[in-house]
């Protein structure tokens, strides 16, 4: 009985393993190798291992500035997404009644719309001749179009928040729905007012969902390069834009690979922290 089961299990495991090896592990290995190579003056890749790329990264303040800015933007997106997503998730989980399925779909459907379309939509809203400025000038709110709306970190944060709110809502709804109703009734029964029940029972028990939603928003924003490209100005260049430039226009793959390795490490560090938090709050 043992052997056929084991070989069956192996057979089942093979495709995902092959997939991970081919499309994840191998590219990462290549990236890692590239990060130790350099580019000659004639744009040829020199295969002599050196730490020059990393030295450049850690001594040039530009990279640190951009990474910190990226983190700041990503964290702003997390805070905004939670501020919008948690109440929405709470409503969906507890008060949506018979319209639940419809409202749930309404949260999911934007995910099926192309990212580009949604990013351009904000361009239409925020532009000098855009919806918002036209409306403000027509109502005499301002005499000149507000220029800080578009091509600013603000535009990037708003766009990314819009795009990643569903990623926060879905896990939070899931964790709220997993809370047994009796726990809420029990809290009520023991004399807790609704807000006390929320703070002492509902919120702590929904933290795993909050953490996974926040992790999605944080990491996806951290690696985003389209929003700053389309809606951000020079002051909102993010780290992924640097990578794209290094691999593209600059044709410096080794340096781009080094930046990518650094980003990857940051992401893994964030993930290990959030996973630990999630595990702790899930079992607690």
């Amino acid at each position: 009985m043992m052997r056929p089961q084991r070989s069956g299990a192996l057979l089942v495991m093979l495709p995902p393993f092959a997939w991970i090896a081919l499309f994840l592990f191998l590219p990462y290995c290549l990236l890692f190798c590239y990060s130790f190579w350099t580019v000659s003056e004639f744009q040829q890749i020199l295969h002599h291992p050196t730490l020059a790329n990393y030295a450049h990264l850690f001594t040039n303040p530009l990279y640190l500035t951009v990474i910190l800015r990226t983190l700041r933007i990503a964290l702003s997106v997390v805070v905004l997404s939670l501020a919008i997503g948690y109440p929405l998730a709470f409503f969906l989980a507890f008060h949506s009644g018979r319209h639940r399925a419809l409202l749930y779909q309404a949260v999911i459907i934007p995910l099926w719309v192309s990212y580009l379309v949604r990013a351009y939509a904000w361009k239409v809203i925020f532009g000098n001749e855009g919806v918002l400025n036209t409306l403000l000038m027509w109502s005499h709110g301002t005499s000149h179009p507000l220029s800080f709306l578009l091509y600013s970190p603000f535009a990037v944060i708003v766009t990314l928040t819009h795009i990643y709110v569903p990623f926060v809502v879905l896990p939070v709804v899931a964790s709220l729905e997993k809370i047994p109703r009796e726990l809420i009734e029990s809290s009520n029964d023991l004399g807790a007012r609704p807000w006390q029940t929320f703070l002492r029972v509902i919120l702590p028990l929904s933290l795993p969902g909050v953490v996974s939603g926040a992790t999605f928003a944080l990491l996806l924003s951290f690696g985003d390069f389209l929003a700053p490209l389309l809606l951000g100005g020079p002051a909102s260049v993010m780290i992924a834009n640097i990578v794209a430039n290094l691999f593209g226009a600059d044709y410096n793959w080794p340096l781009g690979a080094a930046v990518a390795v650094v980003i990857l490490n940051i992401v893994v560090a964030i993930l290990s922290v959030t996973q630990r938090l999630e595990r702790r709050w899930r079992t607690a």
Binding site: E182, E185, S186, N188, D189, L190, G191, A192
Partner: peptide, 15 residues
């Protein structure tokens, strides 16, 4: 409302 009633419940699932 339930939180103002001087009665308490022991649930089947303990809760």
């Amino acid at each position: 409302p339930p939180y103002r009633r001087p009665v308490h419940t022991v649930f089947q699932s303990y809760a």
